[in-house]
């Protein structure tokens, strides 16, 4: 007997959304337009968080104070992505990275670029855990996270 064929139906669900950023995150993107990276400081534990929070996740108090953080920081970890994912905005290969910007107390997620990403061995020589990286701005500001184009390794 021939192998049993299982009947499959293709399906797709497409749902549009309109997502409100709220006051704190709207302000963050307004600051990005002026090429400033701003965090919020907790009045209780004094931590500076980027992305900014409207309230401190640990102290559960409002975070009212804006603090500008450095556009340079330390590369805490990274991953070289060379396989495509559904709805991926950035073309592969790319590097996702966690960066501790000077003057902040949290890791900021963005990408490391500005080097030849096609040669992985070269990438490993250039992109170092614990190494320093610096923000490179997108000349065109669209009000999203890619207003910072990427972070590049600092020699």
């Amino acid at each position: 007997m021939a192998k049993e064929e299982h009947r499959i139906v293709k399906g797709q669900v497409t749902v549009p959304y309109e997502l409100a950023l709220g006051r704190t995150w709207s302000a963050f993107y307004d600051f990005l337009k002026d090429e400033r990276i701003m965090g919020k400081k907790c009045g209780k534990c004094s931590r500076v968080l980027v992305p900014p929070r409207s309230f401190c996740p640990r102290c559960y108090v409002d975070m009212d104070e804006w603090v500008e953080v450095s556009q340079e920081g330390v590369l805490e970890t990274w991953v070289y992505v060379n396989m495509p994912f559904f709805a991926q905005e950035i073309r592969i290969p790319f590097i996702s990275a966690q960066i501790r910007l000077d003057g902040s107390d949290s890791g900021f997620i963005h990408q490391v670029a500005g080097i030849d990403l096609n040669d992985f061995d070269r990438v490993r020589e250039t992109v170092k855990l614990g190494g320093r990286v610096r923000a490179v701005w997108n000349p065109e500001k669209r009000g999203n996270i890619l207003d910072i184009a990427y972070f590049e390794p600092v020699d």
């Binding site: 997502l19 992305p51 991953v79 994912f85 996702s96």
Partner: peptide, 27 residues
Amino acid sequence: MTTVFDPFFQRTFAAGAPGVFTMQSME
């Protein structure tokens, strides 16, 4: 998995579960 990330800051750089778990392992 990608829809588990926030839509404003981190989803852009999400590379599914492998991306996250690799970052964690490297760290």
